[in-house]
Design a protein around this nucleic acid. Sequence first.
DNA 1: TGGAATACATAAGCTCAGCTTGTGGCTATT
DNA 2: AATAGCCACAAGCTGAGCTTATGTATTCCA
Lengths: 303, 303
Amino acid sequence: MYSSQRLPPFAAIRVFEACARHENFTRAAEELGMTQSAVSYQIKILEKRVGSPLFLRQSRRVELTEAGRILAMPTIDAFQRLRSGFAAVDAAAQKTLSINTSPTFALNWLSPRLSNFQVAHPGLAVRVAISCDETDFGRAEVDVAIRYGYGNWPGLTAHKLMASAFTPMLSRDLLDRIGVLAQPSDILIHKIIDPGDPYWACWLEHAGVDASALSDRIGSHLGSQSNEARAALEGQGVAMLTPAFFRTELEMGRLVQPFDLVASDRQAFWLVYPQTRKNERKLMAFRKWILSEMDQSGNSKIG
Amino acid sequence: MYSSQRLPPFAAIRVFEACARHENFTRAAEELGMTQSAVSYQIKILEKRVGSPLFLRQSRRVELTEAGRILAMPTIDAFQRLRSGFAAVDAAAQKTLSINTSPTFALNWLSPRLSNFQVAHPGLAVRVAISCDETDFGRAEVDVAIRYGYGNWPGLTAHKLMASAFTPMLSRDLLDRIGVLAQPSDILIHKIIDPGDPYWACWLEHAGVDASALSDRIGSHLGSQSNEARAALEGQGVAMLTPAFFRTELEMGRLVQPFDLVASDRQAFWLVYPQTRKNERKLMAFRKWILSEMDQSGNSKIG
DNA sequence: TGGAATACATAAGCTCAGCTTGTGGCTATT
DNA sequence: AATAGCCACAAGCTGAGCTTATGTATTCCA
């Protein structure tokens, strides 16, 4: 049900709209930031296209013809709708921040701290979209993501938040039961939660312990640090965890970190977003907040 | 009360409108008669300008984002208004034909014949705007004019309708009273209506009569042939008239043309209109009608 | 009455937005 | 595997849409 006719050139329509409001080419030109000459030219184009004059050229003023009057109303109206539409989308686009991240980071780092951000930005609704694999910015309505990796995502800007950091942890109860862990190799005597986790091998190597025995072990693959941490808290064994994610548990003594040694590879958590969107207000606000939050925790210094 | 914000480039808005309707860039491109590539480019422009994505690029289709949805409604709506506005003006512009001409031509030629035209074009309302001096096409809402002159109006197309043609006429009653008019010079004996009319001098010259005496004569200047004709009909004297305008009176015998000799200068009646409007339907219709009407009367052959 | 000011029209010429062409990549379908 | 459908992107061209400069007509004012 669309009038199938092709519309005249838009530049001309825009100029007409302004002229129809002012009934004055010079004023319209000023409003549009162009010369009176250009306005005159565009109106002429439009009149040629429409097939009849739209303005009567009186001395020192122009006056809408009947055709001009017929056209003026819907045109002015249409432009008003466009303007308010773009104003609305401008406002709305900065109202919701959608953060995509992994379950682990969301649960153990972001969620506990997000209320600070929300207090600081009461006009901004935050939506945390948790996904296990990296969601594509082109395919999902995500403003920013916190991703784990090497910081090299093409087309995306990445800010390093926190280097990878792993160290064995276990519950105090379990430690009490097994007595002292004097040196790293002692850990291998005990049950290891998810021995297939490559960070076990990594940490043991850092510690100078032969890790070859690990590969044969049977253990559960729980898929996220949260799950492994729960198992560790329940005393089911020793888990390889990121200290920054379990600061509270460590401080409260519910989890114990038997060795100072923290292993790391070249990976890290990164704040990432499309390069093209770097200047959005909501994005700048979040970037500023999360970087300062990381700074305060001293996490960004690690690795 | 206008959102003062500058709208994004119109090409981009137009493309967005089509894409929002189709949720498919390729279809939109087809509708707009451009390449998919151009559509993609314009949408990217608009997204950059708006500051957030408007479409999610799914495989084999695109989908509006929330921002896109907010924008789609008012945009589609605005375009609908524009389209119907232009459709309305298209229709309206061809609905009324405004003809500007002199009182003489209007009264003595056009009015009696105009009903033929209106019967042939029932959808077209005709407005005859009578004015003594030539009205400016730029200043008045006039579609066509019938002007008397040499056919050289800059910027206007002119079709010759009828060469100037003048000959003395008088009422039958008066002729009966004065008896026979054997030769042109006999006229000078009688009362001449408006002897200042240059066509008296012109006709007498054609007739080989010395017209110098005329200049001293006192007479009324009635301003239009209609008025002079009325005076002649009332038997007040001999008037210099255009035969084509008084065909009926001649046929009915109310006016008599004593001599076959018809004088003419280089002037004529012309159908004129702005060159730029030559292809308007209503104008073409009127041009065709009036030229064929002239042809039938054989007037265009004179002079 | 004449000259200053205001407003629109027009000619000429430049510049870059907006296109096209061509290609590549991804995904669904068979 | 092969095909077809759809979008992104790079490179390069061109003319629409400007600007500048000037002309014309009217009004205003001293």
